[in-house]
């Protein structure tokens, strides 16, 4: 192998940043680029503010709502699997980044896992921004070549007779895993089901369990 520097790849901040610290070089660069583009009237300050609101409004709670609806409404589930984006739009979700959405259903014979080996493609309209580990080398490099070992690191052991399907996002389509509905939830309301569905279950690294509790982000 050539001597790449991949092993040093990291996305976490270099040090804890306190609120009182002066802005760093790259933060100043961000402010400068943004202000220059606004001064040149190429973009509007209100557009940035609005897009921050858009980003803040997208959290895994939206994906959880989609999953719970699919669990309780078989017709919706069929539409969701046939055209993920159109079915999500029924629930008021928009695809501001103009991506498509394929929803991948986990069953007792198939387990889906999503990754983006080339960068960090992620179903942002329905899950918000991805976790750090999704953007870092270990997950991206290994999910496509040793998915069972990766899943085991998340505590997920997939039996050998269950097929693993890894979807590597590279283009216009994003993926959302429709996890299996846990046993013992027959009496749950749609809202109670929504609360069980975690971000990581919709990436495919863990199942939905009764013990799970969805926490931010």
């Amino acid at each position: 192998m050539p001597d790449h520097h991949h092993d040093h790849t990291h996305d976490h901040p270099h040090a804890e940043i306190s609120q009182t610290e002066r802005p760093g070089y790259y933060e100043i660069m961000e402010t400068a680029v943004r202000e220059l583009l606004i001064e040149k009237r190429l973009i509007g300050a209100n557009e940035i503010r609005r897009q921050i609101e858009v980003l803040d409004s997208r959290t895994p709670a939206l994906g959880a709502k989609v999953v719970a609806r699919a669990w309780v409404d078989p017709a919706f589930r069929s539409r969701l699997l046939a055209n993920g984006r159109a079915a999500c739009e029924e629930l008021g979700l928009s695809f501001y980044d103009d991506t498509g959405l394929i929803v991948l259903e986990n069953t007792d014979t198939v387990h889906n896992l999503i990754v983006c080996t080339l960068c960090s493609c992620y179903p942002r309209p329905v899950l918000g921004l991805p976790p750090d580990w999704y953007k870092l080398k270990p997950y991206r490099a290994r999910a496509v070549s040793e998915p069972r070992a990766v899943l085991a690191e998340f505590g997920t052991i997939i039996p050998d007779d269950v097929q693993i399907r890894v979807s590597d996002s590279t283009a216009m389509v994003r993926f959302l895993v429709l996890p299996r509905r846990p046993e013992g939830t027959e009496d749950y309301t749609e809202e109670q089901l929504t609360d069980l569905v975690t971000r990581d279950a919709m990436i495919g690294v863990v199942p939905v369990t009764l013990a799970a509790e969805r926490t931010a982000p």
Binding site: Y26, T31, W133, V150
Partner: peptide, 24 residues
Amino acid sequence: RLPNDIGGLPADAIDRTEHALEPW
């Protein structure tokens, strides 16, 4: 090979530490 084309390369264990985005 583009620097970010890393699918299948040897890599460390996954560090699941997350950080909230800085405002910038």
